[in-house]
């Protein structure tokens, strides 16, 4: 079950280099003020966490995450053009420019979105899983949550309910060592974060080196299988943020210990290199050289095209665009200036 085929490994490589190219481009665009705003949280360094775990899903399964959502969107197959246009707040963005970096979503991909209030998406995940349980479907909801969020009330309430109602959620705690500037040990009494879920009776699949996509995949397969048949599962992914918390994070400039730590993670625990090494040792470096190079070139091309697409798109600027979709347009609602304005199509 957990032995990925050559095609799967190559596909993972494609996804990971695409994410990295996309994220590093976002970083650059922000520096150049071509992406604006105050929040931009990148998935660089986390690639294997999302890629390895989502490879265990099937199309009808569900995914939800927090604001560090670009990588998740791309893995699910969201169009890079629409994602980049969303970064720039363009009409052609996946959320019409209303959501920005933290609020990507795609109905078509069962991607229920990125959410900006820490922990806020966790009960939503339980609700999405409830629908499957309620209707007798065996689809699971893969839910990504940061280490810092495990200290929030939302986490505890949502996990407990998933346990008592046997909801098919895989709670993936992406432990990247920090919530903003706070190390796990300064924020959490229990530093093995998956044990918090265990306390609610949730089946734990332990800690995984989430720089290694193969290990992530192997454990995710077990957890997904368990969740499909029984109920909630938890996995703790040990990973690292290569671009800090977000664009406002200046700690790495200020703190020598943190920048040394970052350097070490980049040098010896680079998820793309680790995957590449596994592919080469299994299938021969020469045999895969061309296709890996092609994936890298494709990533550069796709991202460059997405930037051109986004920059050529228009910003929404009408009052209608501003007001649209505050509510569902409905015949059941008495027509007032307000209800009509907010439902404008």
């Amino acid at each position: 079950m957990a032995e990925p085929t050559k095609d799967m490994l190559l596909e993972w490589y494609r996804q990971m280099v695409l994410i990295r190219e996309f994220e590093e481009t976002c970083h650059q665009l922000y520096e150049e003020k071509r992406i604006t705003g105050v929040y931009l949280h990148l998935y660089s360094g986390h690639e294997a966490s999302g890629v390895g775990s989502m490879a265990a899903l099937r199309k009808s399964d569900h995914v939800i995450t927090a604001y560090r959502d670009h990588g998740i969107a791309l893995i699910l197959g969201m169009d890079a053009n629409a994602v980049m246009a969303e970064m720039m707040g363009k009409e052609t963005g996946s959320s019409g420019g209303k959501g920005g970096s933290m609020h990507l979503a795609s109905r078509q991909h069962n991607f229920w979105g990125g959410y900006a209030i820490v922990g806020g998406h966790l009960p939503l995940a339980a609700g999405i899983a409830l629908e499957a349980r309620y209707r007798g479907k065996d689809d699971v909801t893969m839910t990504y949550v940061g280490d810092g969020a495990t200290n929030n009330g939302y986490f505890h309430e949502a996990l407990n309910m998933s346990a008592i109602w046997d909801l098919p959620v895989i709670w993936i705690i992406e432990n990247n060592g920090y919530g903003m500037g706070t190390e796990v040990a300064r924020a959490s009494g229990q530093t093995e974060l998956h044990r918090k879920a265990e306390a609610y009776g949730i089946r734990s699949f332990g800690r995984v080196d989430a720089q290694n996509a193969l290990e992530v995949y192997a454990v995710a397969c077990q957890a997904v299988d368990y969740a499909r048949r029984h109920g909630p599962a938890v996995i703790e992914h040990i990973t690292y943020r290569y671009r800090g918390h977000g664009v406002s994070d200046k700690q790495y400039d200020a703190r020598a210990d943190m920048s040394a730590e970052l350097k070490e993670w980049r040098a010896s625990r680079e998820p793309i290199t680790i995957l590449r090494d596994s592919i080469e040792s299994r299938h021969g470096a020469e045999a895969v050289a061309e296709i890996l190079a092609r994936h890298e070139a494709d990533a550069r091309r796709i991202v460059a095209e997405s930037v051109a697409f986004a920059e050529a798109s228009a910003l929404p600027n009408s009052y209608q665009a501003l007001m649209r979709n505050t509510y569902v347009a409905s015949d059941l609602v008495h027509k007032t200036a307000q209800s009509v304005g907010a439902g404008i199509e």
Binding site: T36, G37, G89, K90, G93, S95, G96, G97, K98, G99, G100, S101, H103, L315, P316, N317, S318, A321, L322, M323, T326, Q338, A342
Partner: peptide, 11 residues
């Protein structure tokens, strides 16, 4: 305006 605030800068 009586609306949640959007990301896009002009609106």
């Amino acid at each position: 305006e009586d609306v949640p605030l959007p990301y896009s800068k002009e609106i």
